[in-house]
């Protein structure tokens, strides 16, 4: 595995709150757009195609 799945965010509650707060006041369409932008920005930050493929597979698992 190249993808980090062990805890890696020092302040997990702060991150989660920031994520939910970002969606405040957005309708479903805008929320979906925000999520899509976020995925693209973070994917570029990761950069490693193999890690991204692993993340895609894990996210898809069980759906």
């Amino acid at each position: 595995m190249r993808l980090e799945t062990e805890p890696n965010i020092p302040a997990p509650d702060d991150f989660y709150q920031a994520l939910i707060d970002a969606h405040a006041g957005l309708d479903d369409r805008r929320s979906a757009a925000l999520n899509a932008r976020l995925v693209l920005l973070l994917a570029n930050h990761v950069g490693d195609l193999e890690a991204l493929r692993e993340a895609i597979a894990l996210a898809r698992d069980g759906l």
Binding site: A33, A36, R37, N44
Partner: peptide, 19 residues
């Protein structure tokens, strides 16, 4: 949705232009 997100980001962010 992703297509439009790429285009929106491309205005300011060079990485998105590559997509």
């Amino acid at each position: 949705l992703f297509r439009d997100a790429v285009l929106d980001l491309s205005v300011k962010h060079p990485f998105a232009r590559r997509l």
